[in-house]
């Protein structure tokens, strides 16, 4: 017997399932978050809330600061969002959105309220700040998770001009009219960039489902 077929057959005997099956099963973080939110919704599970907080609070805080809020204002907004998560969990419908999409829409609504009320006097900053600031678990949990970088990959699949429009909308909070003005582009160009970007994103989301 020389070489080719035999060793492969041998290996197949040793490993009766594909090598991939040996890896640690990866838990999709979005699915885990949704599971936690369902536990909060159905059982008012405080541990689930604490875990949701650990998953979301630092990311939401980072997001709010990226949208231009200073850290203290951002943390006040974050507190309101997380209280809303606790109070409105019964409205969550997992068939319509994942936990992160639902929480994103909470954050968005809160930002709309603030913008409309045009009142930036944030009440008592220290309102909900715990006495024991800096429990290590939160920070650890969160930096471990930062590895994911899924959406950077998501935007990197788009031509730069299209990704730029989306970043300006989602991160800088600009309307398409403001984007056109700032980039000095005809409104139709911004519209077609968004349309093309969404064709691609639709495909990416469908492939991920």
């Amino acid at each position: 017997m020389t070489d080719t077929t035999e060793p492969i057959a041998d290996r197949a005997n040793v490993l009766p399932f594909p090598a991939d099956g040996l890896r640690e099963p990866e838990v999709d973080p979005a699915a885990r978050e949704t599971e936690l939110l369902l536990r909060l919704r159905d059982f008012r599970d405080e541990a689930a809330f604490a875990q949701l907080f650990a998953c979301f609070a630092p990311k939401v805080q980072g997001y709010l600061q990226r949208t231009g809020l200073d850290p203290a204002d951002a943390e006040n907004v974050l507190q309101d969002i997380m209280i809303a998560v606790w109070n409105k969990a019964h409205q969550f419908d997992a068939t319509r959105a994942s936990a992160r999409t639902w929480i994103f829409s909470m954050a968005r609504n809160r930002l709309i309220d603030l913008k409309r009320a045009e009142r930036r006097e944030f009440v008592a900053l220290e309102r909900y700040v715990g006495e024991t600031a800096g429990d290590a678990i939160y920070e650890e949990d969160l930096y471990a998770r930062a590895a994911g970088q899924k959406s950077v990959a998501l935007l990197s699949q788009l031509p730069e001009a299209q990704a730029r429009v989306l970043v300006m909308a989602y991160v800088e909070g600009k309307s398409h009219r403001e984007i056109a003005r700032e980039l000095n582009l005809p409104i139709g160009t911004v519209k077609s960039r968004a349309r093309l970007a969404f064709q691609r994103i639709r495909g990416i989301f469908e492939a991920a489902n």
């Binding site: 973080p29 809330f49 604490a50 907080f53 650990a54 609070a57 630092p58 990311k59 939401v60 805080q61 980072g62 997001y63 600061q65 990226r66 850290p71 951002a74 943390e75 974050l78 507190q79 997380m82 994942s98 992160r100 999409t101 929480i103 994103f104 954050a107 909900y128 700040v129 715990g130 024991t132 600031a133 800096g134 429990d135 939160y138 920070e139 969160l142 930096y143 998770r145 930062a146 994911g148 970088q149 899924k150 959406s151 950077v152 998501l154 935007l155 989306l166 970043v167 989602y170 991160v171």
Partner: peptide
């Protein structure tokens, strides 16, 4: 939501 979750996390002092 994906872009929000992609933000660089910032530690907060608030406790759940």
């Amino acid at each position: 939501a994906e872009l929000m979750m992609d933000s660089i996390p910032v530690a907060v002092t608030t406790r759940p």
